[in-house]
Computed example of a mutant assay.
Amino acid sequence: MKDIEGLDDIKLFVDEFYQKVRDDDFIGPIFMNAIADWGPHLQKMYAFWNAALFGVPGFRGNPFAKHAPLGIQPPHFDRWLQLFDETINHNFEGIMAEDAKNRAQMMAVMFMKRLAALGGDAHKVVY
C-alpha cells in the first residue's frame, strides 16, 4: 500500500468513507437526514482534507456549526472514527495516512468538548 499523496487519494478515501457512513445503521440516518445533495458535500470534504493534509487553499466553511445541531453524541463520534480509520487503513499506510487519522481524532475530540460546553443546546452555537 502507498501513502496519501494528493487530491486523487483524498477523493478515494472521502468517497469510500462517506459511502460507509451512508450505509451505516447507526450514523447513516443522521447524515442522510442532514445532507440532501451529497455532491456538494463531497466536494467540500475533498477541499477540507486537501487543506488539512497538504495546506492547499480552497476550503471554506464552519464544520462545527454544521454538525452541532445534529444531536451527535460520543458514541456517534466513536463510530465515525471507526469507519474513518477502517477506510484509511484499507487504502493507505504511511505518514500522511497516520496524519489523517490523527486529525480526525483531534476534530472529534474538539467537537465533543465544544458540544459538551454548550450543554446540549446547539442553539448556543456562535457562527
Score class of each variant (00 low, 15 high):
residue 64 F to T: 02
residue 86 E to N: 05
residue 25 D to I: 07
residue 120 G to R: 10
residue 9 D to P: 04
residue 13 F to M: 04
residue 120 G to H: 06
residue 53 L to K: 02
residue 37 D to W: 03
residue 19 Q to P: 02
residue 80 W to A: 05
residue 69 P to T: 00
residue 123 H to T: 15
residue 89 N to G: 12
residue 93 E to K: 13
residue 27 I to Y: 01
residue 62 N to W: 12
residue 39 G to S: 11
residue 120 G to V: 12
residue 104 A to D: 09
residue 84 F to Q: 06
residue 8 D to V: 02
residue 59 F to C: 10
residue 111 F to T: 03
residue 23 D to Q: 15
residue 10 I to Y: 01
residue 15 D to V: 11
residue 34 A to M: 10
residue 27 I to H: 02
residue 36 A to H: 14
residue 24 D to G: 12
residue 25 D to Q: 14
residue 49 W to R: 07
residue 3 D to R: 05
residue 96 M to S: 09
residue 22 R to W: 14
residue 52 A to S: 14
residue 5 E to P: 04
residue 90 H to D: 15
residue 31 F to G: 00
residue 120 G to P: 05
residue 106 M to S: 13
residue 125 V to F: 00
residue 48 F to A: 01
residue 118 L to C: 03
residue 21 V to P: 00
residue 126 V to A: 10
residue 106 M to K: 15
residue 81 L to G: 12
residue 76 H to V: 02
residue 118 L to H: 03
residue 24 D to N: 15
residue 1 M to Y: 10
residue 36 A to S: 14
residue 105 Q to N: 12
residue 5 E to L: 10
residue 35 I to W: 03
residue 83 L to T: 04
residue 51 A to P: 00
residue 66 K to G: 03
residue 86 E to D: 15
residue 69 P to L: 01
residue 115 L to E: 07
residue 50 N to K: 08
residue 59 F to L: 10
residue 122 A to G: 07
residue 88 I to V: 14
residue 23 D to C: 06
residue 24 D to M: 09
residue 6 G to E: 08
residue 9 D to M: 05
residue 108 A to C: 08
residue 63 P to M: 10
residue 104 A to G: 15
residue 65 A to E: 08
residue 2 K to Y: 03
residue 81 L to A: 09
residue 14 V to N: 01
residue 116 A to T: 11
residue 118 L to S: 06
residue 127 Y to D: 09
